[in-house]
């Protein structure tokens, strides 16, 4: 299992609410190998967002273990988790989440600031990633000057800039029209072919179809885990 990017063992998360404890996620065992493209599906309240937060090291589990690139990260502190997010994981959000005051280049370079890179290296790598997602020449633009699809490309460039092994995408096409969605999914497929593992949360079947493997959650439990049946390239 050493090739696994992600391995969870009995992963669970319980929230304490005023009405008592609420188990959002219970006993999830899942292993995702290096270079896999996995879609996570499920209705809202199924626990898929909780699971993504745990995978993204944004939260710590109440029970179970989580091995990220072979290392158990279930009990790490906040700053160690931040370092992991910085180096091992690239995030792509539904709402793009770019910083509006910064140029695209600075947005893409931001993870490198926290990684402690020098200015010229940050600049060079940010430009390279912008070019990789097809936005060369837009370095100085602001996020509000480009389209939603372009913004999501910038977000993907930012996720890629520190060369992570894993990209976590939370409904990346949720705010985009179908044509742009297809473009973004094409970009993800390309990146996956280059060897980057991708975990994608979606509730749209045709988006999930791009992934090679589909995992379904319901009521905090992992209910199905199967390869994508159709052979249609997306």
């Amino acid at each position: 299992m050493s090739a696994a990017v992600i391995r969870t063992l009995g992963l669970g998360k319980t929230y304490q609410t005023a009405a008592g404890s609420f188990p959002a996620l219970q006993g999830v065992d899942l292993s995702i190998g290096n270079g896999e493209f996995v879609a996570i599906m499920g209705p809202s309240g199924s626990g898929k967002s909780t699971f993504m937060n745990l995978l993204g090291c944004l939260d710590t589990p109440s029970s179970g273990d989580y091995f990220l690139v072979g290392r158990n990260v279930a009990h790490l502190g906040r700053d160690e988790l931040a370092a992991l997010r910085n180096r091992c994981i690239g995030f792509v959000f539904q709402g793009f989440n770019l910083l509006p005051r910064m140029s695209l280049e600075d947005n893409v370079a931001l993870p490198l600031v926290y990684a402690g890179c020098r200015r010229d290296e940050r600049r060079q790598r940010a430009r390279r990633e912008l070019a990789r997602v097809g936005l060369a020449g837009y370095e100085g633009a602001r996020p509000n000057q480009i389209s939603g699809g372009q913004q999501q490309r910038v977000a993907i460039a930012r996720a890629l800039v520190n060369a992570p092994q894993l990209i976590l995408a939370d409904e990346p096409t949720g705010n985009l029209d179908s044509h742009t969605s297809a473009e973004i999914m094409g970009l993800f497929t390309d990146l996956n072919r280059q060897g980057i593992s991708i975990v994608l949360v979606t509730h749209e079947a045709d988006i999930a179809a791009c992934a090679a493997r589909q995992v379904r959650f319901r009521d905090g439990l992992l209910v199905s885990d199967e390869p994508t049946s159709r052979e249609t390239p997306c």
């Binding site: 906040r78 989440n97 926290y114």
Partner: peptide, 16 residues
Amino acid sequence: TREIGIRMAIGARQRD
């Protein structure tokens, strides 16, 4: 707050 969340997600430590 949201900006802080984004920064944290991409690797800002508390001291950053």
